[in-house]
Design a protein around this nucleic acid. Structure first.
Length: 498
RNA sequence: GGUCGCGUGGCCGAGCGGCUAGGCAGGGCUCUGCAAAAGCUCGUACGGCGGUUCAAAUCCGUCCGCGACCUCCA
């Protein structure tokens, strides 16, 4: 159905490029997952939902995608720059008096629950850093063997200066210039172990109080944060794969260092297409764990937060995010969310309406038939243009108007051909269910159901009083089909779910 | 300070040289017992100032405002 090629904006080249997998029909995609020392917030979710769309669309195009998204459960320090930095997991374990792995398990579970609520497909592989200590040690050794690392007081650092001299790559992804970074030199604690401020630890010697520690040729310690992604992507996708994604805030230094490690170990760049999603903001400022302006998904779904006036269904939030391109910042506000909620419902109602329409062969209006065909096609072409969900959505809304018009005119469609009618149905199903991953909001809440049941019982009661048994029995019978059992007692009627 | 990006109508948000984005909100109309829904329709835009061009929201310069990264964050 697509006439155009899929184009992806590649951070490396800062241009949209036609997507050509290394080994079609297989596609390897790696996305930096969460560090599970705390709840994921909505900003984190935005990134994962964005890549869920990428994953879904690639699958829709027929690619065999291996989607790897890691769980960081060690090595991510509270302050990377200072040697005194404490491991994030270890810190929470100490504070909450739990095993580090209990922390990891708790927040991993929470993360999975949230992703499920957002209807995000699970990745093909979800590796953990602690599960790949051996591989990480091996990569540190490879980097040392190639002369791009040095041991200092039991820790191993990446020799950024030497790497930058031999490979022009350093700074390319993030647009940094090595000389600027030198100027950035600041007098920080523990920096003495490093030869250059831009050097970073690939293996760190554990301080005595550090809980998470492993044996290595250099010290009892733990792997550097940037290393795990290099190792796990290589392990599962090979040393040259298609797409690497993550939030924009990981571009530097995390992804830049990742490239350096891969080149340092394997001699060539690991990734063809780098994709970065933009930030979620609250009142114009980035949502961030460290800024304490986070809204948690759970708080959003229940409405218990300081930012928003009411609760929003996960599907509404997902839809809301799709209205903005992944590369733009997205600001959360109550007004915008409410508009999104109505828009979402309009779309879903339109989808339902479409499914209720009948096609009948008749006189085909050529221009209309052609317009519908073109609009259907446009949805795919917008997705092919760097996953432009807002534009695809706009076209879909245009089609919703058509669908509603068909319904107004009696629900029988004959002005477009059967083929076009079927295509229209396919586009809605493809986009709403497969590509956008949208589904109906969770069932009406208890309060509404209770209210409805009381109303039905009241109506039935008045028909019983009029001895209108046909009506009262019909109500009881239909409810029974819905697995609701009415119980007529002395004190009135109650109901239970069968 | 360095690097990058952004400023679009009441709100959100696409577009990025000529052609209606879209959603929400507001006005009018149609339909319907009423209401809602739905359809049709209307209005208010491209931060300021210059420049390039037959033509600029879209390119260039400049000024103003905002943000991100440069330190942990998706």
């Amino acid at each position: 159905m697509q006439n155009t090629d899929l184009k992806i904006f590649n951070t490396l080249t800062r241009t949209k490029e036609v997507f050509k997998p290394v080994n079609p029909p297989f596609v390897g995609m790696y996305v930096c997952g969460p560090t599970v020392y705390n709840h994921v917030h909505l900003g984190n979710c935005r990134t994962f939902i964005s890549f869920d769309i990428v994953y879904r669309y690639l699958l829709h195009l027929g690619y065999k995608v291996r989607y790897v998204r890691n769980i960081t459960d060690v090595g991510h320090l509270v302050n990377e720059e200072e040697m005194t930095g404490e491991d994030r997991i270890g810190k929470m374990a100490r504070i909450e008096k739990l095993e580090p792995m209990e922390i990891v398990q708790r927040y991993t579970n929470g993360f999975h629950d949230v992703m499920k609520q957002f209807n995000a497909l699970p990745p093909s592989i979800e590796p953990t850093a602690t599960g790949h200590i051996v591989e990480q040690i091996n990569m540190v050794q490879a980097i040392l063997d190639n002369g791009y690392g040095y041991v200092s007081n039991g820790s191993v650092y990446f020799d950024t200066l030497k790497y930058a001299k031999n490979h022009k790559e350093f700074g390319r992804l993030s647009g940094k210039i090595m000389d600027d970074l030198q100027v950035e030199t600041r007098d920080l604690k523990g920096q003495s172990e490093k030869r250059h401020p831009a050097d970073f630890a690939i293996w760190m010697k554990a301080q005595p109080e550090h809980i998470m520690r492993w044996n290595s040729p250099w010290s009892v310690g733990f792997p550097g944060w940037h290393l795990e992604c290099s190792v796990m992507s290589t392990r599962y996708l090979g040393d040259k794969f298609d797409i690497h994604g993550g939030g924009m805030d990981l571009q530097f230094p995390h992804h830049e260092n990742e490239i350096a490690q891969n080149i340092g170990a394997c001699g060539h760049a690991p990734v063809n297409y780098w994709m970065h999603t933009n930030m979620l903001t609250v009142n114009g400022t980035k949502m961030s764990k460290s800024l304490n302006n986070s809204v948690l998904p759970g708080e959003m779904f229940t409405g218990e937060n300081d930012v928003l006036a009411k609760a929003y269904d996960p599907m509404v939030v997902r839809f809301f995010m799709l209205q903005t391109h992944y590369s733009s910042t997205l600001d959360f506000s109550d007004e915008a969310l409410q508009a999104g909620e109505k828009g979402f419902r309009r779309l879903m109602e339109g989808y339902k309406t479409l499914q209720s329409l009948q096609h009948k062969n008749g006189k085909v209006e050529e221009s209309e038939d052609q317009a519908v065909t073109e609009e259907c096609q446009a949805c795919y072409e917008h997705m092919n243009d760097d996953f432009s969900t807002p534009q695809a959505l706009a076209v879909l809304f245009g089609l919703v108007t058509r669908v509603n018009t068909y319904k107004d005119k009696g629900g029988v469609v004959s002005s477009i051909s059967k083929e076009t009618f079927d295509r229209l149905n396919k586009v809605f199903r493809d986009f709403i269910e497969d590509i956008f991953g949208l589904k109906e909001e969770e069932g009406a809440d208890e309060e509404v159901v209770d209210g409805l049941m009381q109303l039905i019982i009241d109506i039935r009661q008045s028909s019983r009083e009029k001895k209108d048994w046909d009506t009262s029995d019909k109500i009881r019978a239909v409810l029974k089909e819905l697995e609701i059992q009415l119980k007529d007692g002395k004190d009135g009627t109650s109901w239970t779910k069968a």
